[in-house]
Design a protein around this nucleic acid. Sequence first.
DNA 1: GTGAAAGCGCTAACAC
DNA 2: GTGTTAGCGCTTTCAC
Lengths: 365, 365
Amino acid sequence: MTSGSRHGGQHSAPTPRVRLVDVAREAGLSKTTVSAALNDTGRLSPAVREKARETARRMGYRPNATARQLRAGRAKLIGYVVGEAADAPSVFLESPYFARLTGATAATALRRGYALVLLPSGSLQSEWADLPLDAVVVTDPGADDRIVDDVLAAGIPVFSDRSVEGRQGAHWVDVDIDAAVRSVLDHFRDQGARRPVLVVPDSTTRFHVEVFAAHREWCAEHGLQERVVRVGEPGNGPVVRAVETALAGGPEADGETVAGGGPAAGVDRPDALLVVAEASPPLVLEAVRRHGYDVPGDLLLVCVSEDATAEQTDPPVTTLTLRPEAIAEAGIDHLVKVLEHGSREPSGTLVPTRLDVRASSVRRP
Amino acid sequence: MTSGSRHGGQHSAPTPRVRLVDVAREAGLSKTTVSAALNDTGRLSPAVREKARETARRMGYRPNATARQLRAGRAKLIGYVVGEAADAPSVFLESPYFARLTGATAATALRRGYALVLLPSGSLQSEWADLPLDAVVVTDPGADDRIVDDVLAAGIPVFSDRSVEGRQGAHWVDVDIDAAVRSVLDHFRDQGARRPVLVVPDSTTRFHVEVFAAHREWCAEHGLQERVVRVGEPGNGPVVRAVETALAGGPEADGETVAGGGPAAGVDRPDALLVVAEASPPLVLEAVRRHGYDVPGDLLLVCVSEDATAEQTDPPVTTLTLRPEAIAEAGIDHLVKVLEHGSREPSGTLVPTRLDVRASSVRRP
DNA sequence: GTGAAAGCGCTAACAC
DNA sequence: GTGTTAGCGCTTTCAC
C-alpha cells in the first residue's frame, strides 16, 4: 500500500481531497508546472507534461472549483428566477412553457460554461446574496416585481424581457409579440372568421400586456369589434371559466370582465377563439363543446401553448409556440456576449414565434 | 464628490467592486474588525461595530461569495439532475411531478442555505466538473444511468432514490411504493372492482419497477389475475394508446405488451384502471370513453399524477399523489443533516403517498 | 523549460 | 477590544 491511504479510522474521515501541491510533490515537480501541464498552457517538455498528467490522474486529482473561481474573478454562475412572485409560491415550472424554457436555458448555459442556479420566485435578497452570481435571468417579471431592482442594485447584470429595456445593466430578449398576435388574427381572417375573441390573463407581465395591445391595434385596423375576456388568476379552472364567459358572450362571471361585450347570444356568437392564458388544450376543447360549438365548424380555436397534448386531441389544436428553446438560446448567447465582452450597454434581441396550424383552426371546405 | 467615483470614462468600466479592505481603510479600521462587525463575531465595542457597519452600508459593500466559499471549504451548492438521460434530452421538467419536485427542492434547499444548480439529464462530466458541488441530487435514475457512478467517483455525495441503497457515499429518499400501490388496489377492491388493470411504463426507474412488483404481489395475495400493460415510451400519445390496449384487452398494438392477456372482450372486460405512467387525465378519460366505458359506472379510474387538470374533468379523476413537496423537504433535510454532521454512512428516508379520492373511482350506489 | 512567489478576497488564530 | 498574520487552492507573471 503506497502513501495516499490515511489512518483508516472507524469514522472514515471525509477524504481530504488531493490538491495541486500533492500532485506536484508526488511527481517531483512544482505547482506551476503541474498547473501548466493540466491546463495546456506554458512551455513544457512533452515528457514533463505527460508525467504531470499521469500523476494527477493516478492520484485522482480534481481541481478545486472555488479556488479557480476566486482566481478568475467570476464564478460562471447564473441565477434564474421566474417572475410573478407574490401569489404563486414556487408553483412556477408548472406550465409547459416555463418548464421547457427552464430546461433549455439550463442546458444551453451549461454548454456555454455557465451553470444555472434555480431561484424560486419570491426568493429573498438574503437567499441569493451569498451566491457568486455573474448575472441573473428573470423571465416574465410582473410590473411590481422587486427582483429586477434588487438584482440591479446589487450590481449584477439582469437579463429579462423587454420590460427592462433601457435600464442600466439590464438586457432583454423577447418574443415578437406584435407579429405573433397578428399572425393568429390574420390566420383567423383568412379562414373566414369575423368575430374572434381573445382570452388573456389580466397580469402585468409584459407579454400579456403587449398581447392585449397588439390585439386592440389589429382590431382597430380591421374595423372589428374588440372582444376580450381577461382571466384574473392562472390555472386551468379560471381559464376554462373565462373561455365559457367568452362563448356565452355576456359580461358576467366571477373574476372575469369582458370588454366590449356585445348583445346576447345568437347572431353575434364568436367564431374564433384565441386563448393566450396557459391552459390544457383538451380542457379548453371540452369547454368549447359543452357550449355547443363544433370545432372547427362553428369556432376556430388557437391556443398559445407548449402543451404537447394539443396534438393528441380530436381535432388537434392549433398552437402558437413561443419557442422556448429558441428564446433560451438567444438569451444565453446574448448573456455570454455581454459578460465576456464587457458591454454594460443596454441591449436586446427579438425572437420570432411560430404558428403550428392544426385542424382546430382550419375551416373545412 | 468623494472618492469612490472613478474616471467616468465613456466605457464605464465594469465597476470595480468595493472590497473589505476598502471599507476598512475608509473607516480607519482593520479588515479583521470590519469582518467581525459584519459577521457579528468577536468582541467589539458597539460603537466600532456600528461604525464599521455604517461605512460598509454607505459604500455599498457586498462580500465576495467566492472568497468566502474558499475560506469555508464548501460552496453550499447542490447539483440537481433528473435521471433517464439518453433518450429524452432536457425535456425533463415537462411532467407536473418533476416540475413540482424541482421547484420545491430548489425552494427548500435555498431556505436551508443551499442553492440548486440545474444539471440537464445527460450532462457530461466535463460540464459539472468545474462546479464546486457539495452534493448532487439525482431523481429517478435509470438502471443504466452513468450519472450516479460518475458523481460518486468524483467523491461527491449523492442523494437519490432507493436504488442507490447501501452504496458508499450515497443516500436515499423514496416514496413508500408498496403501500401506495396497495392503497389503490385496496380502494378498487372496496369499490367492488375485481378486474383491475395496471398501465405502467416499461422503464428501469426504481419507481416503475417497484410498482410492477407490488402489483404482482398484491394480485397473488388476492388470487387475482395479473393484468398489466407496459408503455414503451413516455408521452401522452404512447400512454393513451396503452390505455386503449388495456381496455381492448388484446396483446396487440405497437410497443406495448400485455402480460396475462385474457380472452377477448365481453365477459372479461376490466373494471378498474390504474395509470401509473404520467399522462394528462383529461386525455386518459377521453380515451376510456372512446372505448365505450362509463366512468365510474363501468370502470374505476385512478391516475398517479400531480396534474391539476385531474380536478377539472367531469367526473374529476382520483389521483395518487407522490407529494413532491414532501419528498423535496425530506430529501433536503436529510442532505443537510448528512452534509453538516458529516456522516458518510449510507442512509435513507421513506415518504408516504396520498390517495386523493374523487368521483372517477367511486362506484355510485 | 522550470520554479519561486505574489495574490484573488475573505476569515480566524493569535498576539498586543 | 483591536490589529497583524497566515492561509483556503489555484493561476500567472517573472526571474533563473
